[in-house]
Each structure stands twice: as structure tokens, then as C-alpha cells.
């Protein structure tokens, strides 16, 4: 046995930065659940490739809730606008925005719904956001373990609000890795989106402000990556229902729902304006 095998491997925490092409022809990339001699699972990396081609999805954690937004690329003018939703509700207080293979995303969210429903059956209470992220990380990971399945071609942004921690935002990758975020981005325009998210004073903005920023960031990322294609902006939020307490440390089971049409329209108008201005003056509140 070569001694290198006995060396402890560095803990792989994120697979984004690996160069990809060295895998081809080695034979180690032909089956899931197989390690290459340097300790990589190429099939998982390839699944990540599928995500990188998907429409941009972002999540913003605010002080009083969470905003999810996706760039829904429109392949044909015959499509029914407003149908073909990309952000799914899971239970009443969690939303999941996915980038990557859409059918895989549906499978993923339907599992998340089962997790939420089972949690309720067992504990008679909604599932905390971190527990949901854990469960879904575990589920994605299981699909890297066997040669009889393939990993999910999906990176999922999980946003919600629970009683213990208030707003929560997590991103689960095809490997099963899941981190908590203040601002998360995935899909084709993730680099541009991340750069913009980093400029925001997260999580100290309100949901209303995040709606405007999310629209702007999706427009910006679209402009940067898939300018030639049409797209539709889909946006949801998780926040406490109207009438409940609204103060600095907001906690409680939020409600995940679509952002009202008027607010989206206004945010899109501002986003377009800032694109035309092309300026950096978009930061003022």
C-alpha cells in the first residue's frame, strides 16, 4: 500500500475551487462514491458543474426575516409567465430556492417537505431552520455514498424563521456540505451576486430593504452572465405575519410567501434604473 494513502487527508470543506479537467481519463470519475488517489469524488464535482450552469439564486438574511430570489431564465415566449415556480415552500415557515437541475430540485424540496411533516408529527411543532439544513445536508450526502445513485445536481438555499434563532439562512451543496449564511448565492451569476451581497450591511437590514437589494442583485448578476436570455424575477420572503411583535430581536415562526406583486414591481423598477445608471450609487438606504 503506498504510504500516501495513510497520510491524513486535508479536510475538504468546499469543493468550489477545485480545477476540474484533471479528472478526465483517469477512470476515477466514472462512478459515484469512488475516491480518486488524491481523495476527491469527481462525480460530486461534476454535479456541482450542473449547478454552476443554472439560473442565479440568492438568499439574504435580515434582522426581521429572510428574502429568497431567483433568476428564472425563460427559454421560450410560449411559456406561461408566473407559472413554473422555482422557489418552493416547505412547511409554512421555510422556503427553498434551488439552482441546478430543476427536476432534482423538486425531488430535494419534496424530501424537505417530508422532513418538516415528520418533525411535526413527532414533536407537534414546526422544524427549526438549522435542523432542516442538517437533515437536507444528510440527505444530499447519502447520494454521494453509493454507486447506484448520483448526487443531486442542485445547490439549495434554505431560508426560514424559527422561534429559537429567528431568521435562518443555509446553503446545502451537492456534496452534502451546508453552511449558515447572512447572504448566499449560487448558480451562474454567483460570483457577481456574492460580490454585491458582501457590500450589504447584513444582517442589519430590513426585509423590505432586502427585497430591493435582491432584485438589484439578480438583475446585476443576470446582466453579468446571461444578458442574451430573457428572465423572470421570482422572489419570496419569510417574516412574521402582520400584527405580530416587531422589535429589534425578532423571533418566532415566520411565514414563507411570495413577495407582494407591487413590491416586486417597484423593486424591479429600481433595479432596472440602477442598471441603466450603471453606477455604484445604489447603496443608499
Amino acid at each position: 500500500m503506498p504510504s500516501s494513502v495513510l497520510q491524513p487527508l486535508p479536510l475538504q470543506e468546499s469543493i468550489h475551487h477545485f480545477p476540474v479537467m484533471t479528472s478526465i481519463g483517469t477512470g476515477y470519475d466514472l462512478s459515484n462514491s469512488v475516491f480518486s488517489p488524491d481523495g476527491r469524488n469527481f462525480q460530486v464535482e461534476y454535479a456541482t458543474k450542473a449547478v454552476e450552469n443554472g439560473g442565479t439564486a440568492i438568499g439574504i438574511r435580515c434582522k426581521d426575516g429572510v428574502v429568497l430570489a431567483v433568476e428564472k431564465l425563460i427559454g421560450s415566449k410560449l411559456l406561461v409567465l408566473g407559472s413554473n415556480k422555482r422557489i418552493a415552500s416547505v412547511d409554512s415557515h421555510i422556503g427553498i430556492a434551488c439552482s441546478g437541475l430543476i427536476p432534482d430540485a423538486r425531488h430535494f424540496t419534496s424530501r424537505a417537505r417530508s422532513e418538516a411533516s415528520n418533525w411535526r408529527k413527532l414533536y407537534r411543532s414546526p422544524i427549526p431552520i438549522s435542523s432542516m439544513a442538517d437533515a437536507m445536508g444528510g440527505y444530499a450526502q447519502a447520494y454521494t455514498l453509493y454507486s447506484s445513485v448520483r448526487p443531486f445536481g442542485v445547490t439549495a438555499i434554505i431560508g426560514g424563521m424559527d422561534e429559537a434563532g429567528g431568521p435562518g439562512l443555509w446553503m446545502v451543496e451537492p456534496s452534502g456540505v451546508g453552511w449558515g449564511y447572512f447572504g448566499a448565492a449560487t448558480g451562474r451569476g454567483r460570483q457577481a451576486a456574492k460580490a454585491e451581497l458582501e457590500k450589504l450591511p447584513l444582517p442589519n437590514i430590513t426585509v423590505e430593504e432586502a427585497v430591493r437589494q435582491a432584485a438589484r442583485i439578480i438583475y446585476f448578476a443576470h446582466d453579468d452572465n446571461s444578458k442574451d436570455k430573457d428572465f423572470e424575477l421570482e422572489m419570496t420572503w419569510v417574516r412574521l405575519e402582520k400584527g405580530s411583535a416587531e422589535d429589534a430581536a425578532v423571533k418566532g415562526w415566520g411565514k414563507h410567501e411570495e413577495v407582494p406583486k407591487e413590491l416586486v414591481a417597484e423593486a424591479e423598477r429600481l433595479a432596472k434604473e440602477s442598471m441603466e445608471g450603471g453606477g455604484d450609487e445604489e447603496m443608499e438606504e
Binding site: 415556480k85 418552493a88 415552500s89 416547505v90 412547511d91 409554512s92 417537505r113 418538516a116 411533516s117 411535526r120 408529527k121 407537534r124 411570495e258
Partner: peptide, 16 residues
């Protein structure tokens, strides 16, 4: 009330 109907409505509403 609290198990069947609650989960019924949650499942109905998240279809959106």
C-alpha cells in the same frame, strides 16, 4: 384538528 387537518392545510398551501 391538530395533526390531520393542520398538515392537510400546510400541504395544500405549500403547493402555491
Amino acid at each position: 384538528h391538530e395533526k390531520l387537518l393542520d398538515s392537510l392545510i400546510i400541504k395544500e398551501e405549500y403547493q402555491n
